[in-house]
Design a protein around this nucleic acid. Structure first.
Lengths: 215, 215
DNA sequence: GGTTTGCACCTTGTATACAATATGATTGAC
DNA sequence: GTCAATCATATTGTATACAAGGTGCAAACC
């Protein structure tokens, strides 16, 4: 793996963990020293992050960490909800036996993780559940866009799984989604998936509102 | 503007015009010589293009032009149609008087361009019409994603405006969309916008099929 | 004659040196 | 005392030099 990719991943982690907060300027030289490399791979890493939208690049000024505020976060979740709804509509019309089998397997794995109270495992199995639906759209381009946004929202979705009862509620929503897909109910699947994501959005709203009030 | 941006734009143009076809390897040195610069800004330009998905980067191998084939193109248009539908649904619920006024102004400008038979002008005014709808979603993130995909599909959409009667048909579709938005008919606006883009997709299918058969 | 291995060359990845521009402070004028 | 202009400094943008890895050809062996 190239140095640029390693550095980009490191900075990405430090951004999502909050170590690098909004507005912090990412100095090329200090990052280069931290990783014991020259500025060249650092610059490439910063360009990767710029493309993913995690940092902002101001010409001749430098790159700055760009943490989405509450408004932008809610907009991103609304977009995710709508896109998941689209995926559900298409998947309901196109999913085949193999896809349904994979969906059931993912559902079972989610249930096992929830029963064990393992939030980390639930998170990753939940990601599989959704990825199966993305793949069932039979649209590789849309699938890629969905995976990209899903990944970008990962840190904000993950934190709220710790809320009490969220895993069980999520699981029951999965059941409704799977049923609609099985029955070929396009509108039902779209509505169920939109609601599934919108719930997360509302929880985030509560959490960040609380955090802000506490700080 | 940085050299990297200039070079990226140049290569992008040469890709969309077909001068650089699928699979062509973009040699850093020859591009650098072409623009009379060093390899450094060329590498940055290639990274920008990699991020936008126009070229593919294979480590230690180089970057290669990546023209979407017919299947991928149809998938991209299907995605655009669905996303436009989403935008229509949200815009119908949220558009205000000013937004409607801007929509009408864009419609008038489209009509003028169509009456003059000016395909170029129709194209740019059509882009405004759609951009107004994107903005009316009151979701800046979604708006950005829509503009990004719209731009990416630009070369493929543009070519088919030359087809006879397309501008008139497009115009009448715009009227239906505007009416649904004015009436706050969310489902109607979504369906009208989906259909509006899907028609383009079908035309593309015909055109590329023909081109392929002719070559 | 076919296959495999080694070497030369070419290309990408990285380091460093140089150029240009924005920032901030300092000094001068009003 | 305040504002503006200018210059020093630091940081980004670009060029060039060096390192490392991959490709293709050729020669030798099977």
């Amino acid at each position: 793996m190239r140095q640029a990719d390693i550095i980009a991943k490191d900075i990405e982690n430090r951004i999502v963990t909050g170590e690098l907060d909004h507005g912090v300027r990412l100095d090329e030289v200090s990052i280069a020293e931290r990783h014991a490399v020259s500025r060249t791979p650092v610059r490439e890493a910063l360009q990767l992050l710029t493309a993913s939208g995690m940092v902002e690049h101001l010409p001749r000024r430098g790159v700055f960490v760009r943490q989405p505020d509450l408004v932008e976060l809610l907009q991103m979740f609304e977009t995710m909800a709508e896109w998941e709804g689209v995926a559900g509509r298409l998947a309901a019309m196109r999913i085949d036996g193999e896809g349904l089998a994979r969906l059931m397997a993912a559902d079972t794995a989610c249930a096992a993780a929830a029963a064990a109270g393992d939030a980390d495992r639930y998170y990753s199995e939940n990601a599989v559940f959704h990825a199966v639906i993305y793949a069932a759209t039979a649209n590789a381009f849309l699938e890629g866009e969905l995976l990209r946004l899903h990944h970008r929202l990962r840190p904000y979705r993950r934190s709220q799984l710790l809320m009490r009862g969220r895993m069980e509620q999520s699981l029951s929503e999965h059941r409704a989604i799977a049923a609609a897909l099985r029955d070929g109910d396009a509108n039902g699947a779209a509505a169920a998936l939109r609601a599934h994501v919108t719930v997360q959005s509302e929880r985030i709203h509560l959490m960040l509102g609380r955090t802000k009030a506490a700080s």
